[in-house]
């Protein structure tokens, strides 16, 4: 029993050190792939960016895609963009997913998986709301239908800054 408690206690010391709101978003650049041209965070300087990390095998990601697409269309603001970085092993998996869940926003495949490591994500999906100054203002983990309205309010606020 003592060892069991010790074992459970072990978990407490293992706090994770992810990025937090207020920090500048790390710079990254993705090389071109058959699915997308080269891409850097700098390309979206001066815009509010919803930077999403997703995979074809993640159920909430599938749920989030049509909702994010709708949110982007509803806002209809050229200063807002959704950038969704895919972390699938195989590019075909991402392509099949996009055929099933077509979207108008930017999607890119990170073959080397450097960006999810850079952003220290702890689960799928994780999204970073980046303001016009390139600062992380909100981190969103998971995705549920109910999340959209709060997310929209946050984005509108950042757009007004």
């Amino acid at each position: 029993m003592k060892t069991l408690l010790l074992l459970l206690g072990l978990g407490i010391s293992q706090l994770s050190f992810a990025l937090s709101a207020g920090q500048p978003a790390p710079h990254f650049s993705l090389s071109a792939s058959p699915a997308n041209p080269a891409l850097q965070l700098k390309d979206f300087q001066g815009k509010v960016v919803y930077l999403d990390f997703w995979a074809s095998w993640c159920p909430p990601c599938a749920k989030s895609f049509p909702l994010l697409n709708q949110l982007r269309a509803d806002l209809g603001n050229p200063d807002f963009e959704v950038v969704a970085i895919n972390v699938d092993e195989k590019i075909e998996d991402m392509q099949a997913f996009l055929r099933q869940h077509p979207v108008d926003f930017v999607t890119a495949w990170d073959k080397a998986k450097q960006t999810p490591a850079l952003f220290e994500i702890l689960g799928m999906p994780t999204a970073f709301l980046v303001d016009k100054q390139g600062k992380i203002r909100h981190i969103h983990s998971g995705f549920r239908r109910q999340d959209v309205s709060a997310l929209r309010a946050k984005i509108e606020q950042l757009l007004q800054e």
Binding site: D88, P116, A117, I121, G123, M124
Partner: peptide
């Protein structure tokens, strides 16, 4: 195993 390496495990 990183969170983004779990495609096989989630299958």
């Amino acid at each position: 195993v990183k969170p983004w390496q779990r495609g096989s495990l989630a299958s």
